[in-house]
């Protein structure tokens, strides 16, 4: 029973990371029908940016507001920084080739991914970096019996779930959200209705990467080890999660991410760690055979 509770928490943590990164994939895909392969690398960049802020700039924040103060500065700094990096990416890598069709866009996305990951390697070096021990909050909360959860982990889960709820609210319940969904549905008609499509694009390219950056900094805080190709594993899993949930819609990405994390933890904990990824991808294939559009597919009629 204790182990089951622990595995649920483990799965929820892993799933939170997948879900946060998956939102970035799915938003861009929803609006532009483009798989932003560079998204996983923006996640890594966010993690490194948070690391740099903690190493050089968070000293005063830690001294003034305690260790969590440093963390908040690093998280917000990385989110804003990577949000702008996302905008820049769109401007440099995607905007010039929109009209050329989808294939050049995919190539451009792959190129951007390789560029970012190699730039990270060139700047921070090819070796593992570790988040400074002194700026990682320590301690854990005992839930019941011997089941405990580190404060960093707890905050990771709560902040992720909170932000997911906020994203859900913005997209599904606000006027701006309807504009985003309308653009995803039919860009031309939406534009005719007076929706500023450029603004929608800026929104998805700012918010998606900054959520990725948040996940990146949390990954550093939880696991401390970061490396220039960190985003490859997370990117692949998050992309899988967004497909699992039904790519193009945000609740799908959240549910897909959490489900993937839970499946991994439960399978690894109860059956076999060595076969974890095999199992997870078999499940993915089975789900896609039964529901080719993912678990939560858009409830709309196909465009004619």
């Amino acid at each position: 029973m204790e182990m089951f509770a622990e595995q649920l928490i483990n799965g929820l943590t892993i799933g939170s990371f997948y879900a946060l990164v998956a939102i970035g994939y799915t938003m861009v895909y929803g609006v532009m029908k483009l798989i932003n392969f560079a998204h996983g690398d923006l996640f890594t960049l966010g993690s490194y940016l948070g690391y740099t802020i903690l190493v050089i700039g968070a000293g005063w924040a830690t001294a003034t507001f305690g260790v969590w103060g440093g963390v908040i500065v690093a998280v917000i700094g990385a989110m804003i920084g990577i949000g702008f990096a996302g905008l820049l990416l769109e401007k440099v890598a995607y905007a010039p080739v929109y009209k050329a069709g989808r294939l050049p866009l995919v190539v451009s996305a792959l190129g951007a991914s390789i560029f970012i990951s190699n730039a990270i390697m060139a700047i921070w070096g090819p070796r593992y970096q570790a988040y400074p021990q002194a700026s990682i909050p320590t301690g854990s909360l005992v839930l019941f019996g011997d089941v405990r959860i580190t404060y960093v982990r707890l905050v990771t889960i709560l902040v992720s779930l909170g932000l997911m709820a906020l994203m859900y609210y913005i997209i599904e319940k606000t006027t701006f959200g309807s504009a985003v969904r309308a653009s995803a549905l039919d860009k031309d008609t939406a534009t005719l209705m007076g929706i500023d499509f450029k603004k929608i694009i800026r929104f998805v390219f700012f918010v998606g990467p900054s959520l990725g950056a948040l996940a990146g900094v949390f990954a550093g805080l939880n696991y401390s080890r970061i490396i220039f190709n960190l985003g490859q594993t997370y990117g692949l899993k998050a992309f899988t999660a967004s497909i699992l949930g039904g790519i193009g819609n945000i609740p799908g990405a959240m549910i897909g991410g959490l489900l993937l994390g839970l499946m991994e933890a439960l399978f690894e904990g109860y059956v076999s760690g060595a076969w974890k990824n095999v199992f997870v991808f078999v499940i993915l294939i089975v789900i896609l055979i039964i529901r080719p559009t993912g678990l939560i597919s858009e409830k709309i009629a196909e465009k004619v």
Partner: peptide, 19 residues
Amino acid sequence: DAVTPNESDYSAVVSQIKA
């Protein structure tokens, strides 16, 4: 058993060891 290299979260295996 084995773990998957290059991942970050090994908590599922850790819980198993703990039990």
